[in-house]
Write a protein that binds this DNA or RNA. Structure first.
Length: 736
RNA sequence: AGCGGGGUGGGGUAGCCAGGACAUCCCGUCGGGCUCAUAACCCGGAGACCGGUCGUUCAAAUCGACCCCCCGCUACCA
C-alpha cells in the first residue's frame, strides 16, 4: 500500500467552471486517484478556489460589491459543481483562509531567511485620480524599444520586450486616462536565477513526463530565468508578513501554488492529526502528481519546484501530466440554441457519469480536442449506451429473468480461460495505461472489452441455448456475469455511480469501492441472488439546430442598413475613422477606411452595417459594429444598400436574423464575396447558382457562401432589393 | 502580422518522441446475420497515394528542410 499526493490546479474564483476545466485539470486527477484508491493506495487529493488577484477585484468593482463576496460566491458555486461531478477531493478549500495566509507567510519568511528573496526598489505607476498603484495590465503606453503605442505596463506584446516600471513612454491609466505618476515602491523578488542549474538537473530524468511538458520546460529553462517580483501594491490578497509593508500583498501566482501545501496542512488539521500531511510531503518515496492545463505548465515545472527547493525538505513534483485544451468550435451554435457548457447548467441536464464519460473519451491528452454537441450525443449514445450499457443490460436482464441468481459454471476449463484471459489482458492494459496517466487509452481498452462481451454473447446465443440446454446456458451466463463484474470494476474510476449500481445488480453485499481492484477477476459465488436490473444509461437528445441548415451561418448575423451621420478622424490612429452611424439608433463605429474614403465622402452615405458584433475598443475608441466593404487587395469599396432603403432596414435576404452578439473572429469565419451577376448565375471567382432572387439588375452584388467552396450563394438583400458594390470590383473579392 | 498547436478514408480520431510486413478505432454508408437487449448487438464490403515538394534510409504517416492550409492567443483586422 503506497501513498500518493494528487494536486489539482486551483480554479479561479471569478466564473463558474466549465467543461474545459473538467477536461484539463479536474477529471484526470479524479480518475487517477480513484484508480489508486481502488488498488488500495492512500491518496491525498487537494485543491481549492484561487481567490486573489486583480481579475476578481475588477469583477467586484463592476458589480459594485467586494472582492471577498465575488470570490466566496464562485467558490461555493464551483465547489458544488465539483461535488456534483463526483470528483472526490480529500479537501477542496480556498486561498482566502487563515490557514493559507499562515502557510504562505511561513514560506515567504523561510525563503527570506535563506536569502532567496530580496527587496528591490522599483518605479511603479500610480494613478492619482484612482488613488492607487496600477496593475501592469491597466497601464498603456509606447514601447521604448519598438515604439508600439499599445504596450502594457510590464511587457510589449509587439516586440516581446519586458519592462521594469517606468520605462514606458507616455503611459496612461487605462481606467481614467489620467497620466499616472511614477512612484518609487519596494517589492520583494525571488531569486529564480539561483535555481536554474538545480532545475535543469532536476528535469533531466523526467523521461516519464509528457513530451510537450518536458520540451516546454526545457526551452524555458534554457532561455534563462529572471528574478520575479512576488509582491504587489494592492489591498486584495495576503499581506506581506513584515512590518512596514502596509498596502502590499503577495502576488497571486506565488500565493496560489503554495495552496497545495496549505491545503494538505488544512486537511491534516481536519483529520485530527495535524502532522498527517508530512507523510505525503517529506517521504521521498511518495510521488506527487500535479494535474493542470497547458497554460499552467511553467508555474508547476519551474516556479513551484524552485519555491520547494528554496524551502527544502519537501517533495518536488513527480509528474505534471498537463492536458491541452478542450476547444469549442461549435460554441456559437450552442449559444444560439441557448444551451451552455458551464458545469452547473450541464449538471441540470445530464448525470455526472454521462459528462465524465464524454470528457474522458474526448480528453485532450496530446492535442486540443474539440467539443460539439453532436459529438457529445454520438459518443454517449453509440458508445456508452449502446456498447457498454446495452451489454450490461442484456446479460443482467436475461440472467435475472431466467435464473434470478448467479447460475453455476459447469463448462470446460477452456471456456473459462477464454473469458478470464480476455478479462486479465484488459485489466493489465488498463493498469498500465492508468499508471502512466493515459486515461483515454485505458477507457478505450475497457470499451473494447465490452465489445468482446457483446461478440461473445452473440456467439453463445443464450436465448436459443436456454431452450436446448438450460445448464449450459447458465454456465455461459456465469462467465458473462464475471465479465460484467470486471467491467464494473474497471469502469468505476470513470463511472463511479453506475458502476456501483451494476455491482448491486450482481447481488453483491459490499460496495465496489470496498471490494477493490481484485474484484476484476475474483470468483462469483454461484446461487448468489441477483437484483432486478434497470438500464444504467439512457440515450440523450441534444436539441437540433433550427433555421436554415445551409445558411445557418448567415443567420448568426444581424445586418442593417445604416447611414453615416458623421465622420471624423480617430484621435489616436492613422488609418482609422470614427463614425456615427444611424441604423435606427445611432451607434459609433471605428472603420479602417481612412485610406480609401474622405470624411466628406463618408458623411450621408448609406452603408450595410453588421450590427450585432460584440463591441470592442479599437485604439481606445468603442466600435459597436462594422461596415461591409469589398476588398480586392488594393481596391476597397463600401457595399451599398438599395437606393430606397432607409436606415434600420434589415438586410436579411428573407432569412432569420440573430439578436445575439457575435465575436469578430466568428464573423471572420463567414464567407462573403463580391459576385458579378451573369444572368441567373453569379461569378464569385467561379460560377455558382444564386439562391433566392432570380432577376438581378445590378452588376455587382454581395453574396454569402455557406462554405468557401459551395456551389450556391445567397445574395444579400433587403426587401427592396440587393446590396450592390461598385462595378470596378472584380467578382470574388472579399467582403468584410 | 507575431508566438503556439495541428493537417491521417465523407466526419471525428489512434499511431509519430524510440522508422519496418495488409495504417487503428468510432460515426456514416452498402450488404448480411441475430432477435436476449435501450431500433440496441454481431459479421462482412466499399472508401486514405497518412496536406505538398524535396531529402536521409535497405525501409518514412513516423526523421530533416522548405512550402501550403487550418485552429488558438496576441495585434492599428472593424
Amino acid at each position: 500500500m503506497a501513498k500518493v499526493l494528487v494536486c489539482v490546479a486551483w480554479p479561479y474564483a471569478n466564473s463558474p467552471i466549465h467543461l474545459g476545466h473538467v477536461a484539463g485539470s479536474l477529471l484526470p486527477p479524479d480518475l487517477y486517484s480513484r484508480y489508486r484508491r481502488l488498488r488500495g493506495d492512500e491518496v491525498l487529493m487537494v485543491s481549492g478556489s484561487d481567490q486573489h488577484g486583480t481579475p476578481i477585484t475588477v469583477r467586484a468593482e463592476k458589480e459594485g460589491t467586494t472582492p471577498l463576496e465575488v470570490a466566496e460566491r464562485y467558490h461555493e458555486i464551483n465547489k458544488r459543481a465539483i461535488e456534483g461531478l463526483d470528483i472526490e477531493f480529500s479537501l477542496f478549500t480556498k486561498t482566502h483562509t487563515e490557514n493559507h495566509f499562515r502557510v504562505v507567510s511561513e514560506v515567504f519568511l523561510e525563503l527570506l531567511k535563506k536569502g532567496y528573496l530580496y527587496e528591490k526598489s522599483t518605479l511603479q505607476y500610480f494613478c492619482p485620480s484612482c488613488d492607487k498603484f496600477l496593475p501592469d495590465r491597466y497601464v498603456e503606453g509606447a514601447c521604448p524599444s519598438c515604439g508600439n503605442e499599445k504596450a502594457r505596463g510590464d511587457q510589449c506584446e509587439k516586440c516581446g520586450k519586458t519592462f521594469e516600471g517606468g520605462e514606458l513612454v507616455e503611459a496612461k491609466c487605462v481606467h481614467c486616462a489620467t497620466v499616472p505618476e511614477l512612484r518609487e515602491t519596494k517589492h520583494h523578488f525571488i531569486r529564480l536565477s539561483e535555481f536554474q542549474e538545480q532545475l535543469i538537473d532536476w528535469i533531466k530524468d523526467k523521461e516519464h513526463w509528457r513530451p510537450s511538458v518536458q520540451l516546454f520546460t526545457q526551452n524555458w529553462l534554457e532561455a534563462g530565468l529572471e528574478d520575479r517580483p512576488i509582491t504587489r501594491d494592492m489591498e486584495w490578497g495576503i499581506p506581506v508578513p513584515l512590518p512596514g509593508q502596509e498596502g502590499k500583498v503577495i502576488y497571486v501566482w506565488f500565493d496560489a501554488v503554495i495552496g497545495y501545501l496549505s491545503a494538505s496542512k488544512e486537511w491534516a488539521q481536519l483529520s485530527g492529526d495535524p502532522d498527517a500531511w508530512k507523510a505525503y510531503w517529506t517521504d521521498p518515496a511518495v510521488r506527487s502528481y500535479y494535474f493542470l492545463g497547458k497554460d499552467n505548465i511553467p508555474f508547476h515545472t519551474i516556479i513551484w519546484p524552485a519555491i520547494l527547493m528554496g524551502c527544502g525538505g519537501l517533495n518536488l513534483p513527480y509528474d505534471v501530466p498537463a492536458n491541452e485544451f478542450l476547444t469549442f468550435k461549435g460554441d456559437k451554435v450552442s449559444k444560439s440554441r441557448g444551451t451552455t457548457i458551464d458545469i452547473p447548467s450541464l449538471l441540470k441536464r445530464f448525470d455526472p457519469d454521462i459528462i465524465r464519460y464524454y470528457v474522458a473519451a474526448n480528453m485532450p491528452e496530446n492535442k486540443d480536442a474539440d467539443f460539439s454537441w453532436e459529438d457529445f450525443e454520438v459518443k454517449i449514445n453509440n458508445e456508452l449506451v449502446a456498447t457498454l450499457g446495452n451489454y450490461y443490460h442484456r446479460v443482467l436482464s436475461f440472467t435475472y429473468k431466467h435464473f434470478g441468481e448467479v447460475p453455476e459454471f459447469v463448462g470446460t476449463a477452456e471456456e473459462r480461460e477464454e473469458m478470464m484471459n480476455a478479462i486479465r489482458e484488459a485489466r493489465d492494459a488498463v493498469a498500465e495505461a492508468m499508471d502512466g496517466c493515459h486515461f483515454k487509452r485505458a477507457l478505450k481498452t475497457i470499451m473494447d472489452l465490452a465489445q468482446f462481451g457483446n461478440r461473445h454473447f452473440d456467439s453463445v446465443g443464450p436465448w436459443a441455448l436456454i431452450k436446448k440446454d438450460r445448464q449450459a446456458c447458465g454456465s455461459a451466463l456465469h462467465l458473462h456475469l464475471m465479465l460484467v463484474k470486471a467491467l464494473a470494476t474497471l469502469t468505476s474510476p470513470y463511472l463511479p455511480s453506475s458502476s456501483e449500481k451494476a455491482w448491486t445488480f450482481l447481488g453483491q453485499e459490499s460496495t465496489l469501492q470496498q471490494a477493490g481492484w481484485s474484484a476484476v477477476d475474483s470468483d462469483l459465488e454461484a446461487h448468489q441472488k441477483l437484483n432486478e436490473p434497470k438500464p444504467l444509461f439512457s440515450k440523450i437528445e441534444v436539441e437540433k439546430d433550427e433555421g436554415d441548415p445551409v445558411y445557418g451561418g448567415f443567420e448568426t448575423l444581424n445586418l442593417k442598413v445604416g447611414r453615416i451621420v458623421k465622420a471624423q478622424d480617430h484621435p489616436n490612429a492613422d488609418s482609422l475613422l470614427l463614425l456615427e452611424v444611424d441604423i435606427g439608433k445611432t451607434i459609433q463605429v471605428v472603420a479602417g477606411l481612412k485610406a480609401y474614403y474622405t470624411k466628406e465622402e463618408m458623411e450621408g452615405r448609406k452603408v450595410v452595417v453588421v450590427s450585432n458584433l460584440k463591441p470592442a475598443k479599437l485604439r481606445g475608441e468603442q466600435s459597436q459594429g462594422m461596415l461591409l466593404a469589398a476588398d480586392s487587395g488594393d481596391l476597397v469599396k463600401l457595399a451599398s444598400p438599395p437606393e430606397d432603403s432607409v436606415p434600420g432596414d434589415a438586410v436579411s435576404s428573407g432569412l432569420r436574423q440573430s439578436d445575439r452578439l457575435i465575436e469578430f473572429k466568428d464573423f471572420q469565419k463567414l464567407t462573403l464575396r463580391v459576385a458579378a451577376v451573369d444572368g441567373n448565375e453569379l461569378d464569385v471567382g467561379r460560377t455558382v447558382r444564386a439562391k433566392g432572387l432570380v432577376e438581378l439588375k445590378a452588376k455587382r452584388v454581395v453574396a454569402y457562401l455557406p462554405t468557401p467552396d459551395a456551389d450556391e450563394a445567397l445574395v444579400l438583400s433587403t426587401d427592396k432589393g440587393p446590396v450592390t458594390v461598385d462595378d470596378a470590383m472584380p467578382g470574388g473579392a472579399t467582403v468584410r
